[in-house]
């Protein structure tokens, strides 16, 4: 396990290939300063978690990376290109699913492709593939209100996967599902990171979840938010998903993160 002080990040990992770079980003909502001079690198093909107390600006940062919100200062680069708005290289998974209630599962999953002008038969073939991949085969004609919360989030995930973006932005995707489903999702997410060769940026409230799924964990401080610490778990990744929660390093990191965050929780 290695901990890197953000000030020395650039020197410590010069060779690391970043898919997304956040440089000195600040964001003000009126006179509320949500982010202040935040810098963070997201290595390609890895999953980085953003962990921090409620209201510290995690969603704000994710939306700025997505191009949905303008930053007040600083710069975002995806694959070396400066972000000025939403792009085909990024796809978002929303905390509240953001499904179209009037469209069935198939159309919801294909919606990203529909907006890109992909022909109907082609986009439905792609959507069906990802519907199967997230385990919703047979539900193509169902409407969102006929699905459970966990199934709705699978639709949101399939929609994000089907546009084949290099960077996936996930805003607390599992917070609205029950504990068992959540554990299954976490395992699926690990498999996805391994298979899809994509860069994942993952916001969560759960320390255990962050340590379980992440290659890199960025701990944010409360408003105005900066990165206080970056943690890269190293040893338990290769040992198989079933052993992670018993691994001493896993338990140590969970404890350590809790120790550094507890002072911000009254």
């Amino acid at each position: 396990m290695s901990q890197i002080n953000p000030a020395t990040l650039a020197d410590a990992r010069p060779a690391l290939d970043s898919a997304v770079s956040v440089r000195n980003v600040s964001k003000n909502y009126g006179d509320v300063q949500a982010l202040k001079n935040l810098s963070l690198e997201f290595p390609r093909g890895e999953l980085t978690s953003l962990l921090g107390p409620s209201g510290c600006g995690k969603t704000t940062l994710l939306k700025i990376i997505a191009g949905l919100l303008p930053q007040s200062a600083g710069q975002i680069e995806v694959d070396g290109k400066t972000v000025t708005g939403p792009g085909p290289d990024r796809a978002f998974v929303f905390q509240d699913f953001a499904l179209l209630p009037w469209a069935n599962v198939l159309r919801n999953v294909a919606f990203g492709l529909e907006l890109r002008g992909v022909a109907k038969s082609e986009r439905e073939a792609i959507a069906e593939k990802y519907i199967r991949e997230v385990g919703l085969a047979g539900f193509e004609k169902k409407f969102p209100h006929q699905l459970s919360g966990g199934m709705r989030q699978r639709v949101g995930l399939a929609r994000a996967l089907s546009v084949d973006a290099q960077v996936l932005l996930l805003d607390e995707p599992f917070s609205a599902v029950d504990e068992q489903t959540r554990r299954k999702f976490q395992e699926d997410l690990l498999a996805l990171v391994a298979n899809e060769k994509k860069t994942f940026i993952f916001v969560t409230h759960s320390i255990e979840e962050a340590v379980y799924v992440s290659d890199q964990i960025a701990i944010l401080l409360p408003r105005p938010s900066r990165v206080s610490e970056i943690i890269r778990p190293t040893s338990f990744r290769g040992k198989g998903v079933d052993n992670i929660r018993r691994d001493p390093e896993y338990l140590d990191i969970v404890d350590e993160i809790w120790a550094s965050l507890r002072s911000y929780v009254e």
Partner: peptide, 24 residues
């Protein structure tokens, strides 16, 4: 949130009107 969703998947203003706002 569904307007944001459409924008994040590259909807034009017209898409947002015809595929999100009017059906909603």
């Amino acid at each position: 949130s569904i307007k944001d969703m459409a924008k994040s998947f590259l909807a034009s203003d017209r898409d947002v009107l015809t595929k999100i706002i009017i059906p909603a």
